[in-house]
Design a protein around this nucleic acid. Structure first.
Lengths: 337, 337
DNA sequence: CCTTTTTTGTAAAGCGCTTTACTTTTGTCG
DNA sequence: CGACAAAAGTAAAGCGCTTTACAAAAAAGG
């Protein structure tokens, strides 16, 4: 049988309210406090979070919603969030939505019934409505690595994808590349990265060719197909940027199939600095995000809201960093270098 | 203000017990049932899981404990478990332990206080004691992809690592390899794989060289170092098996550093068939596990125990499959092939 | 040594739901 | 149409904890 506060009270010879008080560090005389502590110890008493939450206390549980925990980048984020959450005494209950709106809605509803203290929503949401509804429900929410919704008053921690796109493009331009392709996704973050790409081109007075931007279905296979297609085109690019590392792996495979040497014949870059980018051959030049600090901030913001410390919302924009590895080099066709 | 069962009862003009009964599909007259349903609908009533769990019902939450959610293989497993759990109406709360015993203990304790309905423990545990304690606590537990503890009466779903090691070694032997190295880890699964490796050697009357088995610290860097070391040895191996795909990436890098062509000069294999093995160059011959079915079974077994359907424990041993890709080929030094 | 404060400790209500035991309604049948 | 069984509905206790309002005890002061 589970040992309850009553058992402790009885064993210590005090009332349950006294026991409750020592648990919550309230004024209790030294003597009874000791008695209670001793009783707890001896009975190996573990208070029920359920019961205490029912009276209005926290559940110390965070709803963590993302598209797919199996995605290495998201898994890495999850780990960082989890670590910070544990540090401050919270647990994560995880739900993968596959970007399906009905799952997003269902899971949020379910977790609310389970009285999670707040939500961390990672990555873009299929449907803004879900978000809007949630923010109207007086429950703490943090958007992490998601599109920034300027119109929504919700705490947000994002990386500046525009800068990321700008940096990596500039890096390639620095190597003399002029025809730089971009394999993108439909997500909002990709669009931002493309904006940065365009900005870099423009600042260096390079022409923007619409046909160099292609949209993938986010699979390695599709990226490979697109890469081959790009490389087969009459005026082929000398560098290919992918909007994430996995896509870049596809590019690598496609290029190899065509007998190209990376980076001698073609520069390729990834995005997100995942395990993949470090372990492939050649290791990828990519863009790293300050994941750890972003996750820590996201958790801390959420907790502050949960505990009612802070009321005003804020949006944090983190800056990404260019990581230069072996997959990029000078444009082999550039005459004057 | 949150809407409770009282609000519904009042609106419907019945008692709360009637409302409770319709929620739990018990005998209730048609008329009142409709009134209640309508009231619930209109009030957008969502029963509190906390309150209902406090009275003895399930929390429909599973404690999911593993070493590191950021590990791609584990993330994949997590996803499968999550999917199945959601299908049957359960959520996962996730805890990464880094193999630290104190974390294992703390998280299990914490989750018990939160009244999770059961635990799924993934991978090997640092300390068997934690496990033993847990199994003595009348809470449902499943070991997934973990060492089988023959002495423990606990539900288990594991892959047959012995077979895995045997299969991949036999595959290499079939290619004429005789000096086959094995880069292992300390975990129990590695040991089983090595047993299979030895068995294969023996069945083919090949000598077992102790110096061909090396233990890594599980990092890519260390695997690379060990690979180089093996390749520098006087009587170098013609094939290297790694006990997981990540280590194999390290081998790939080491081999490349030494100017070897894979698979012409050296065959290398991974284990676990992760994303890594598919996306690297050349794609790795590896061992795949029936992850999906294993995870489904694990969840189902747990639920059965939670709901008290089944009482007897069982241990399920799944069979792995050899996946042949481009990283293995004939032994170049073999005379008669 | 008695009154006033302050410190400790307690009883009881309440959190939102389930469940048991019981009462009221309905329906059935002779 | 009255007696009785079945069906429908309800009151109340209880799950394990927090908290408020209050009582008892201890400390302080005159």
């Amino acid at each position: 049988m589970k040992v309850t506060i009553y058992d402790v009270a009885e064993k210590a010879g005090v009332s349950i309210s006294t026991v409750s008080k020592v648990m919550n560090n309230q004024q209790v005389g030294q003597k009874s406090k000791q008695k209670v502590l001793k009783a707890m110890e001896e009975l190996d008493y573990k208070p029920s979070v359920l019961a205490s939450a029912l009276t209005g206390k926290r559940t110390s549980t965070i709803g963590f919603i993302l598209s797919d925990i199996a995605n290495p980048f998201l898994a890495e984020i999850t780990r960082q969030v989890e670590d910070r959450a544990h540090e401050v005494g919270y647990n994560l209950v995880i739900c993968s939505t596959d970007f399906k709106q009905e799952k997003e809605e269902r899971y949020i509803e379910l977790l609310r019934q389970k009285s999670v203290d707040g939500f961390i929503l990672v990555g873009d949401f299929k449907n803004k409505d879900v978000l809007v509804k949630l923010t109207h429900k007086d429950v703490p929410v943090i958007l992490l690595a998601a599109e920034s919704h300027p119109s929504l008053s919700v705490n947000t921690v994002t990386v500046d994808n525009f800068i990321g796109g700008y940096e990596i493009t500039s890096h390639l331009i620095g190597f003399g590349h002029e025809r730089i392709a971009f394999i993108a996704e439909t997500a909002g973050s990709s669009q931002e990265r493309i904006r940065g790409y365009k900005q870099a081109l423009q600042e260096h007075s390079l022409p923007y060719h619409e046909d160099l931007i292609v949209i993938s279905d986010s699979s390695l296979e599709d990226a490979k197909r697109l890469a081959v297609q790009l490389l087969d085109s009459p005026n082929r690019p000398t560098a290919i940027i992918s909007s994430n590392d996995l896509l870049a792996m596809g590019v690598l495979m496609g290029a190899r199939e065509k007998g190209l040497n990376i980076p001698k014949d073609l520069s390729v870059t990834g995005f997100d600095n995942t395990l993949l980018s470090k372990s492939c051959d050649p290791p990828l030049t990519t863009i790293a995000h300050p994941i750890k600090s972003m996750c820590t901030q996201a958790v801390d913001m959420l907790i502050e809201e949960v505990e009612g410390v802070k009321k005003e919302k804020q949006k944090i924009l983190a800056l990404p960093t260019l990581i230069v590895r072996k997959s990029t080099d000078y444009n082999p066709f550039k005459t004057n270098r």
